[in-house]
């Protein structure tokens, strides 16, 4: 279980605050107006920003001070998820060993992961030789081999067309189910939320609401959400 206890982060005159927990295996959408602090919340959980107050716990263990790679987290960023100078296999392999010195068995795991996301035989391709959708698949294959219990997605498919985005969200959902992982995704598209989320965290002006059931929230939306959706 991921727990944020009275966490607070100040950047200039912007303050992000939240106090909530997320049950294991949940699929959570993080939504809110632009500038509300969605990406900042993800950076905080990922360990790229250190909070000014409060604590973050994973399975009751305090990980507030842990470095990004020491946390039980794999990431999909908005862009630059793949190193342009590495092949697909190398990009996935980094998820197993950052030194890229892989054993035979580990190389096989990489190939299996690529097959699992529909990229059989594309090991030696570089990102420039792959389509946008295929690049997302490589990044998801890496999430698969990383085998971390928490996956953070920061609008990773926003550069793709609507149909492709739907497909990728479906694939991400599959990956998280296969790993039994908790999944947190920032998005600004309500259709995406419908597609995968069971819980939703609404953020406005840096205030993170505790996660609520999406169907329930839609029936009784907070004022800001009504304005955001425009109904």
């Amino acid at each position: 279980m991921l727990e944020l206890r009275s966490i607070r982060l100040t950047q200039g005159n912007f303050t992000l605050s939240g106090d909530f927990s997320i049950p294991d295996g949940a699929r959570v959408a993080i939504i809110g107006p632009s500038g509300a602090g969605k990406s900042t919340l993800l950076s905080l959980i990922g360990g790229f920003e250190a909070p000014d107050a409060g604590a973050m716990l994973w399975d009751t263990k305090d990980v507030t001070q842990a470095l990004p790679h020491e946390r039980p987290i794999s990431h999909l960023f908005q862009d630059n998820n793949l190193f342009a100078h590495m092949t697909a296999a190398q990009n996935v392999g980094l998820g197993i060993k950052p030194s890229l010195r892989l054993s035979k068995a580990e190389q096989e795991r990489v190939s299996e992961a690529l097959s699992a996301v529909g990229l059989t035989g594309m090991e030696v391709r570089r990102p420039a030789e792959l389509s946008g959708g295929q690049q997302s698949r490589v990044a998801l294959a890496r999430v698969l081999v990383q085998e971390k219990p928490l996956i953070l997605l920061d609008e990773p498919f926003s550069a793709l067309g609507p149909a492709m985005r739907g497909e990728m969200i479906g694939l991400a959902k599959e990956v998280s189910e296969k790993l039994g992982a908790t999944m947190l995704m920032v998005t600004h598209d309500i259709a995406d939320v419908d597609r995968f989320a069971d819980l939703v965290i609404w953020i406005e002006d840096g205030q993170c609401q505790p996660p609520r059931d999406w169907a329930e929230m839609k029936a009784d939306p907070p004022e800001g959400l009504k304005a955001y959706i425009g109904t």
Partner: peptide, 24 residues
């Protein structure tokens, strides 16, 4: 471009220099 990705993958220290910075 790659700072966060490298951090999240544990590409630190000399691995970071060899695998990410040198090629770039």
């Amino acid at each position: 471009d790659y700072g966060r990705l490298s951090d999240s993958l544990g590409l630190t220290g000399f691995s970071r220099v060899r695998l990410v910075l040198f090629p770039r």
